[in-house]
């Protein structure tokens, strides 16, 4: 095994050069983005924007372990996904090109705190708009609407919706809302919990779990990545609306982002198609809610 690996490493060193060259199909920075970087942007009365301008860069919080939504390719260091591209688009509207964006991976539990502390200028990463979060931060958007869904192996025909879950192994993130929902409303399902969805997906692939449940959009991302082995099934059975997290009280900044979302319908569709189009699911941009 050792010898095999040594030989491969040698071959791989050469292959790496080729591979790094051609990666980046998913709406990267190779000049064919559906958005253009705006020039001479001004937002009156936005402290967040002023701070960004004087720093010469925008810091955006994202996820990095959700293929199709917010994903960091370990091999190339490139970020891809629907959320990441929405973030790039918003940055462009604000006048910041790819080289002026600093992405920061922040786990779900720390999102509000990072915005409150001013460590990030905005957060784009499967961030559901809720009233309790609105007490600490504000949301632009929504830019996507989803709900709890199910992901199963591509050859699984027995699970077509939450009613088929009785007696099956259902996996989700530890202590998450979707798993609570299953526990309360579908008590006959057997529950597995890991701290990332990727571990749950690995459990489907090794045959230990029958279904993964969480926001359908996240599941769609996994299905888009491995269409041969995974698929999403059934209608969503809850509603989650994703917004862009921004610092509390900066209404000028929030309005600017909302306007950009409202006026950029074509860009939105292009981003959807580039990242999640392969799943065959048609994306539909939700109306902005200027609360």
């Amino acid at each position: 095994m050792k010898r095999r690996f040594a030989a491969m490493a040698a071959a791989g060193a050469a292959a790496a050069l080729v591979l790094t060259g051609c990666a980046g199909g998913g709406g990267g920075d190779n000049g064919d983005q559906p958005w253009t970087v705006a020039e001479d942007v001004t937002i009156e009365g936005s402290a967040t924007f002023e701070a960004m301008q004087s720093a010469g860069q925008i810091v955006i919080g994202v996820k990095e372990d959700q293929p199709g939504l917010g994903y960091l390719d370990a091999a190339t260091g490139e970020r891809t996904g629907f959320d990441v591209d929405i973030a790039r688009w918003m940055a462009a509207e604000l006048g910041f090109g790819e080289d002026q964006i600093e992405f920061k991976a922040i786990p779900s539990a720390n999102r509000e705190q990072e915005l409150v502390n001013g460590n990030i200028d905005m957060y784009v990463g499967t961030y559901s708009i809720t009233d309790s979060r609105k007490e600490q931060i504000d949301f632009a958007g929504p830019y996507a609407i989803t709900g709890q869904g199910l992901l199963v192996a591509a050859d699984n025909d027995s699970i077509n919706g939450p009613d088929d879950l009785a007696g099956t192994n259902v996996c989700s993130a530890t202590g998450s809302t979707p798993i609570q929902n299953i526990r309360e409303n579908y008590p006959e399902a057997k529950i597995q919990e890991f701290d990332t969805y990727s571990q749950c997906v690995a459990k489907i692939e090794d045959g230990s779990a029958d279904a993964v449940t969480t926001d359908a959009l996240i599941l769609l991302g996994y299905a888009a990545q491995s269409p041969d082995t995974l698929k999403t099934v059934g209608d969503t059975f809850s509603e989650e609306i994703y917004g862009i997290g921004v610092p509390k009280g900066d209404d000028a900044f929030r309005d600017f982002l909302n306007t950009a979302l409202e006026e950029g319908g074509e860009t939105w569709t292009a981003i959807w198609d580039a990242n999640l189009g392969e799943t065959g699911v048609e994306g539909e941009q939700p109306a902005v809610d200027r609360y």
Binding site: Q192, Q199, A202, K203, D206, G207, S208
Partner: peptide, 12 residues
């Protein structure tokens, strides 16, 4: 994660 793939034992 490795044993289930290799030996197909699945009871966590």
């Amino acid at each position: 994660f490795a044993v289930p793939v290799v030996f197909e034992i699945r009871d966590l």
